[in-house]
Lab assay of single mutants.
Amino acid sequence: NQASVVANQLIPIQTALTLVMMRSEVVTPVGIPAEDIPRLVSMQVNRAVPLGTTLMPDMVKGYA
């Protein structure tokens, strides 16, 4: 099973992502693949992302 990127904390809207905000976890449905974590650093979320939420491509500006 492929690991996805999951929020390690509440990430407020417009926040630039850092490594400490994300973790990898095998979840359903599958979100952004964990191997993309380095690419996500400094990208902004376009909505508030609660703790434990799987990051989906449409939540990160410039990802999809």
Rank of each mutant, 00 (worst) to 15 (best):
T15N: 04
I11R: 01
S4E: 00
V20W: 14
I37W: 04
T54F: 03
S42P: 00
T28D: 15
Q44Y: 15
R39D: 06
P38N: 12
P29W: 04
V20N: 15
P33E: 04
K61D: 12
M43I: 04
L40I: 12
L40R: 00
T54A: 06
K61Y: 14
M43L: 11
I13M: 15
V26L: 10
V27A: 06
Q44L: 13
V20E: 07
P29Y: 04
R39I: 10
R23G: 06
L55P: 01
S4P: 02
L51P: 10
M22P: 00
V49M: 03
D36L: 10
T28M: 09
V20P: 11
T15E: 07
N46P: 02
E35D: 10
N1W: 12
V30T: 11
T53C: 09
V30D: 07
R23Q: 04
P38C: 14
V41L: 14
N1R: 05
M21C: 04
P50L: 09
A16L: 10
V49R: 01
P50V: 07
T18V: 06
L40E: 01
V6N: 02
V49G: 01
T15D: 03
L19W: 11
T18R: 09
S4V: 02
G52T: 01
T28L: 10
M59L: 05
I37P: 02
I11D: 01
P29A: 03
E25L: 08
L10F: 15
T28I: 09
S42Y: 09
L17W: 04
P38H: 15
V20S: 15
G62Q: 09
D36C: 14
V49T: 05
V30Y: 14
S24A: 15
I11P: 00
N1F: 13
P29N: 05
L17N: 02
V60C: 02
M59A: 07
A48P: 11
G62A: 12
K61S: 14
R23P: 01
Y63A: 02
Q14K: 14
L19F: 12
I11E: 01
V30H: 12
E35N: 14
N46W: 11
V5S: 03
P29L: 05
E25N: 10
R47L: 08
S42A: 11
L19M: 14
V60E: 01
S42C: 15
V5R: 00
K61F: 11
A7F: 03
N46C: 09
Q44A: 09
I13W: 12
